[in-house]
Design a protein around this nucleic acid. Structure first.
Lengths: 93, 93
DNA sequence: TCTATATTTGTCCTTTTTAGGACAAGACCA
DNA sequence: TGGTCTTGTCCTAAAAAGGACAAATATAGA
């Protein structure tokens, strides 16, 4: 989810991975992996990416979090029940 | 969530932590911490506990997973949005 | 009250897992 | 070709799991 979004944003900005990599001070392979959900995106990097792509961090954060949750529950038999329980729990608070 | 449930089940069975600890081959402090959500419950342990308490693992698994999700999203600003995204994602599949 | 048993809490340690990232090499265009 | 992107492997460092132990607290019964 997040990876695809990051790729879209980068392309919308007309940037090439090398430029993003330079900004984050990592190599291009790392960016590629982020965009393919093969490496987790740290909050630090997320913030930089938001700035670079001219979106607010708040636009990215829900997707970022959803990604983490998804990874946790995928392949789990009771994911739906679990998610609904958590949703209730979180909503009532 | 899970901790409370485990405690209830244990008491319903009239067991004392020492007995459960013996069954899982850990010490009582460990059981106590599980019941207070201070230590994660491994799947291996969960299975043993289900058997010991005469419930099906399926009764425990959703709670077990919900606990993990909850821990991931609590204190997160966009937990609700994220959970809803994941729920949609998982449901459609 | 005294005491034994049950539980909780804090600290510590070791092992396993995950994050974060580099590098090299291959693939894909154009 | 040259630039872009992808993929695989490797490494180190940080974090989490799993668990022991000791000490402190509750708690129920004699």
């Amino acid at each position: 989810m997040l990876g695809e979004k990051l790729k879209e944003l980068r392309e919308a900005k007309g940037l090439v991975q090398r430029q993003v990599a330079a900004d984050l001070q990592v190599d291009t392979a790392y960016i590629s992996k982020m965009e393919h959900n093969e490496k987790p995106v740290s909050r630090k990097h997320l913030k930089k990416l938001a700035k670079l792509y001219s979106v607010t961090e708040n636009e990215l954060l829900p997707i970022w979090l959803a990604d983490k949750v998804l990874q946790l529950v995928e392949n789990e038999k009771y994911s739906i029940q679990a998610l609904e329980m958590v949703l209730n729990n979180v909503k009532e608070k």
